[in-house]
């Protein structure tokens, strides 16, 4: 006991310094989104090198599962390619077919670290600006389910704002009738997001699938399925709870989606503003 007290006496100044410094840095980091993302990306770049080693060991043991997912994805893509080739061989080349040429590129990435227990959660991926990753790119699972959007990049890592972040927002679309809505997270459950501003004519139902409607991602990216819905008090729009399709607490491998026309779209939007 005496030795413990002696030891505490020896290090209490250092401990106090670490606590006070940590609190001051935390306070500064959370003072604005810029500092939060910047400090997070810097500190995680250091932490990532450590957790990266741990992750690589975990990845080794998860190889069989990863291989299975990749095989399924390859099969799906082959099937899609085959059907496109078949249909294009019967298609007359016109402006419609040219416009539908894909301008989305997929970059595989692994999750280095992620939080799901905060109001503003972030995720770090092992791909950065040197790999062609940039801010605003979408992130999906290998099963084409929405994860989030890239908000910051360092040379070798990027920070993703997942759906489980109270500042997250994206457009959604009901698959059955194409009605659009706004998707965001209220911070209540890590398994559900909220859809707002659904038209009163959208006739939502439980189990209805909701996909992303955004210039950052191609059509067909699934957000989840409606679990409950209600008319607002003014009876002017529906709001709905959506069960997230992606298992956010168990993400290892993801795909970063790049819209090669995104810069052009941004330029156009700037001109409009």
């Amino acid at each position: 006991m005496n030795r413990l007290i002696e030891f505490i006496k020896l290090i209490y100044v250092l401990v106090l310094f670490v606590v006070l410094e940590g609190f001051a840095l935390w306070s500064y980091a959370s003072s604005s989104p810029y500092t939060e993302v910047k400090i997070l990306s810097r500190t995680t770049a250091f932490g990532a090198s450590i957790s990266g080693a741990v992750t690589s060991v975990e990845n080794f043991f998860a190889l069989s599962s990863t291989n299975r997912k990749l095989t399924e994805r390859v099969a799906e893509l082959n099937e899609e390619l085959h059907s496109l080739k078949t249909s294009s061989s019967h298609m007359v080349l016109d402006t419609l077919s040219v416009a539908s040429a894909s301008h989305f590129r997929y970059h595989p990435a692994s999750v280095v670290s992620m939080t799901t227990n905060r109001q503003r959660n972030f995720m770090v991926l092992n791909r950065g600006s040197e790999d062609g990753i940039a801010k605003d790119m979408g992130v999906v699972t290998p099963n084409n389910e929405l994860v989030g959007y890239v908000v910051s990049c360092s040379d070798h890592y990027c920070v993703v704002q997942p759906m489980l972040n109270v500042e997250f927002s994206t457009g959604g679309r009901l698959v059955d009738n194409d009605h659009v809505c706004v998707i965001h997270w209220l911070g209540t459950s890590k398994y559900e997001v909220d859809a707002k501003e659904l038209s009163v004519y959208s006739e939502p139902r439980e189990g209805m699938r909701v996909e992303v409607r955004s210039e950052r991602l191609p059509d067909g990216v699934l957000i989840g399925t409606i679990t409950e819905y209600e008319l607002n008090s003014a009876k002017s729009a529906y709001s709905a709870k959506i069960a997230i399709a992606a298992d956010m607490s168990k993400l290892d491998d993801v795909l970063i989606v790049e819209n090669t026309h995104y810069g052009e779209l941004q330029e156009l939007m700037k001109q409009m503003e």
């Binding site: 310094f17 006070l20 410094e21 609190f23 001051a24 840095l25 935390w26 306070s27 500064y28 980091a29 003072s31 604005s32």
Partner: peptide, 10 residues
Amino acid sequence: GAGLYTATLL
């Protein structure tokens, strides 16, 4: 400073 001054003085 939101903690910046404290963090750099300590």
